[in-house]
Amino acid sequence: MLLKIKNITLSFAKGKDSFKILNGLNLDVPKGKITALIGGNGAGKTTLFNIISGFQKDFSGEISYCHCGLDPQPPLRLENLRADKISRLGIGRLFQSKGLLPHLTLLDNMKLCSNDTSGEFPFAYLFRNKKLLAIENEKEMKAKNILTQLFGENNKYLGMLNAMGCDFSYGEQRLLSLAGLFMGNYDLLLLDEPTAGVNPVYIENIKDIIRKMVAAGKTVLLIEHNMLFVKDLADIVAYMDDGQIKFTGTPNEIINNQEVKNSYLGIE
């Protein structure tokens, strides 16, 4: 197991109005697999992502992350780490309905996603200009490689490296944000509704990209409402309701489950 989530409870608005968003949630994310999280609106899926990636604190429960390199290490506890530290441990995230950073070029967006932060100290170029230039070039090469691998030789994005983030269509921005996740050396990727608001052609592209992520040894945990997409892609599906994981199983098992049919899919 790459990520073990144990007994997470979170409530908003303390006092008599308090209600539990997450109520003793348990989930295991196996390494190298695609796990899909489904469930109705307000079931707490995005909140769970916020908890894993460190944006939501004040919850109870345990999250342990097997930061396994070659030699086995004891699992790390994520509850008290800040979001940027969690990211540096190798957990990347695609936000719900967020695209590229609008005021940076595509190249800068990609470079920024790199896990190499050297040169980001102000005036660093005064002291070690040559080395920094080399690093910047390296990042650029890496970005170009990733774009080539994902979208083929001579794809149009290679010619648009200097276009601003806001000049791309929303669907393209989602694709390119996914591509950006390859820049960092992430082990676990949290993808929040990668296909929402994206047209069918791009959805095929996104499927492809996610498969390539897994092929590159990454583990994927994704939130998705598009059941066809989930059925095609996911190895394991977890159904979430009332702040808990109600069922876990293969896509087929979940789709045939009576309760999921009734309360989520709406089929009799």
Binding site: D84, K98, L101, H103, C113
Partner: peptide, 16 residues
């Protein structure tokens, strides 16, 4: 410039 646009994204890519 990234912070200007979106701090959460900056956090999520490992910069404080």
């Amino acid at each position: 410039t990234a912070i200007r646009s979106d701090e959460l994204t900056v956090l999520s890519i490992g910069r404080n």
